[in-house]
Nucleic acid binder design. Structure first.
Length: 308
DNA sequence: CTATCTGTTCTGAC
DNA sequence: TGTCAGAACAGATA
């Protein structure tokens, strides 16, 4: 489930290899997922790859920008021209092999596969595959100038790990306790977990990192936001930054289908404290056992001992 | 075989 | 206006 750290990991990987490349051909395999005509981007060069919340933005030289949301099972996997050549050779070799029945894991791991929804062919003979098992993901194209006003981006909340340097050389962020308290004041009964995962309030935090952040904070996910003290808000803010930073450091969490731009899994799931650790001992060695409840329709993991 | 679970976001009902 | 259930979809698991 790509959240901010996973999307950021993909962004960094893609940025290294596709910026400056021209899209010589674009193939759409699923019109539900890809919501523009291939012609609209063919011939354009890739200027930059950005991220806003969980959405990737690919800026093109023809004054268009592509928005990509991976939802739960989307993947963007780039293959160098060497990989592509190797694949073509292998494919020719195995042409006589009988393939049938259910798709094997080998068919899934080769590219393209049955989940491939779009293919970018770039001018250095590298290829970028867009895969999505469940078909919730989308690719949309907008004029770059109107990007900020699109329905996808205009209501997104604050970026929690965007830091800037001010005129005095100090590192600053708009993601402050003051901001959180101000937003919470309007919805006092909202549970803290649902508050944190609301994309209109904080950009990019999803189910894994919210559970981790609330564990770091020692705060029970069911607490109404009106019940948090100032020091608890400070802990929440710090913990969100910590959880997301750790996620980026380890290249994201590969609980399900997530892989980075080069098809590699992330390592964050080896470092989680509560997410999907239901029934296992609390890693604080408090003697408690991780519990799972459903909050807002989502699995929620926490230590009843440590999180009050 | 069927039923259930997974989790992001949008839509519609209250 | 806020809250909540259900839908979009496909596959793994029971």
């Amino acid at each position: 489930m790509p959240e901010l750290p996973e999307v950021e990991t993909i962004r960094r990987g893609l940025s290294r290899v596709i910026v400056g490349r021209k899209v010589v051909r674009f193939e759409t395999k699923d019109e539900k997922v890809v919501r523009f005509e291939p012609k609209a981007i063919e011939g354009a060069s890739i200027l930059s790859v950005q991220r806003r919340a969980k959405i990737l933005i690919i800026n093109l030289s023809n004054y268009k920008s592509m928005l990509i949301h991976l939802k739960m099972t989307g993947q963007l996997i780039w293959e160098s021209s060497d990989d592509v050549k190797e694949y073509c050779l292998k494919k020719n070799k195995s042409k006589t092999r009988v393939m049938g029945g259910h798709p094997s894991s080998e068919m899934i791991s080769t590219l393209p596969n049955i989940h491939t929804r779009a293919i970018f062919y770039l001018d250095d003979d590298s290829v970028l595959f867009f895969n999505d098992l469940r078909r919730f993901a989308y690719m949309k194209l907008y004029d770059t100038v109107e990007l900020e006003e699109t329905s996808e981006l205009k209501k997104i909340g604050i970026e929690p790990i965007k830091f800037e340097v001010d005129s005095l050389g100090e590192i600053t962020s708009d993601f402050t306790v003051d901001y959180l308290i101000r937003r919470a004041a309007r919805i006092p009964n909202r549970k803290i977990k649902q508050f944190i995962t609301d994309q209109e309030i904080i950009a990019g935090v999803g189910n894994i990192y919210v559970d981790e952040a609330l564990f770091y904070s020692g705060i029970n996910p069911t607490r109404p936001v009106s019940s948090l003290s100032l020091t608890e808000w400070e802990k929440v803010r710090q913990s969100i930054v910590k959880a997301l930073s750790l996620g980026i450091k380890f290249g994201g969490s590969s609980e399900d289908t997530y892989v980075d731009a080069f098809g590699k899994q992330g390592k964050m799931n080896e470092y989680v404290m509560v997410y999907r650790r239901t029934g296992l001992p609390c890693l604080n060695n408090c003697g408690g056992v991780i519990e799972r409840i459903v909050l807002g329709g989502r699995g929620t993991h926490y230590c009843p001992n440590c999180q009050k």
